[in-house]
């Protein structure tokens, strides 16, 4: 049976893992390669690395981090953050990443999504959507949550699937970093709408939250950061809990 994936996410800035609240207040959370190896050993199903470096130097450092990660772990991983051109995609895949996560660039120019999926295949393209509640719906935000767009999240999710997205990584900006649980309405609505895998993100604080994202949010995978970084709940605890609740997981 296809299992639900648990995906630790690491935000990387200038070669170090950091974690903030609602995209702000960044704190150091360790060496990404070391963390990657630890998560892989503990049973992570995949990993996501988001480069949030602002400088050119930071981006160069990140690429070498990707190469080191590819040598250190034997599970799939996705790389995102600031990918704006086909060359960027080829560079990170060539460095050993399995997938890239695209966000701002494809919102600004949706045709880029089609070009990217034709060039490297949909299986390597994750579209990340940052969603924020507004007037009973959700709006797409870009540039790491700094800029609002008038784009409706549901319209955009459907469109990305048609343009060649292989899966969707949906982050609720309202719940991200709050550790109060995922935005289940958002997840369920998107999961009912699109026929590609959905990764839930933003808000995990307990193992119950992760179960809810899968059962109530109908997510195929769940992404979380801080609950893993500070070792409050281990991956194996979460998997055991999900298994006990009849959710298929790799154990």
């Amino acid at each position: 049976m296809l299992t639900k994936r648990i995906i630790p996410c690491l935000d990387v800035k200038d070669g170090r893992t950091v974690k903030g609240t609602k995209f702000r207040n960044l704190r150091d959370a360790g060496d990404p390669v070391e963390l990657a190896a630890r998560y892989s050993d503990e049973g992570a199903d995949e990993l996501v690395f988001l480069d949030i470096s602002a400088s050119r130097e930071g981006r160069k450092t990140f690429l070498s981090v990707v190469e080191r990660i590819a040598k250190a772990i034997q599970i799939p991983f996705t790389v995102g953050g600031g990918i704006g051109a086909l060359d960027d995609i080829l560079r990170v895949l060539d460095a050993g990443a399995d997938k890239v996560s695209l966000n701002t660039a494809v919102v600004l120019r949706p045709e880029f999504l089609r070009e990217a999926s034709l060039a490297v295949g949909s299986q390597s393209i994750v579209v990340a959507i940052d969603a924020k509640r507004e007037n009973g719906g959700w709006n797409v935000w870009i540039k790491g949550g700094a800029e609002r767009t008038s784009l409706d999240v549901l319209t955009w999710a459907t469109r990305t699937a048609n343009l060649g997205a292989g899966e969707l990584l949906v982050t609720s900006m309202d719940t991200d970093g709050t550790r109060t649980g995922y935005d289940l309405d958002l997840l369920r609505t998107i999961s009912d709408l699109v026929r590609i895998p959905l990764i839930a993100s933003g808000g995990a604080g307990t193992k119950e939250h992760i179960k809810q994202a899968i059962v109530d949010g109908k997510a195929d995978a769940v992404l979380a950061a801080s609950i893993f970084h500070y070792q409050e709940i281990s991956l194996s605890d979460i998997k055991r809990y999900l298994h006990e609740n009849n959710i298929p997981v790799r154990v």
Binding site: L2, T3, I196, D220
Partner: peptide
Amino acid sequence: KVPHMGWNQVTLANESNLFQGIRSDEFFYF
């Protein structure tokens, strides 16, 4: 959902050296 993406189990069918020492229903990434 398409693609089939993630870890799924492989049930061994016919004997093959390729799977020696690997249990039936082991997980692999697809």
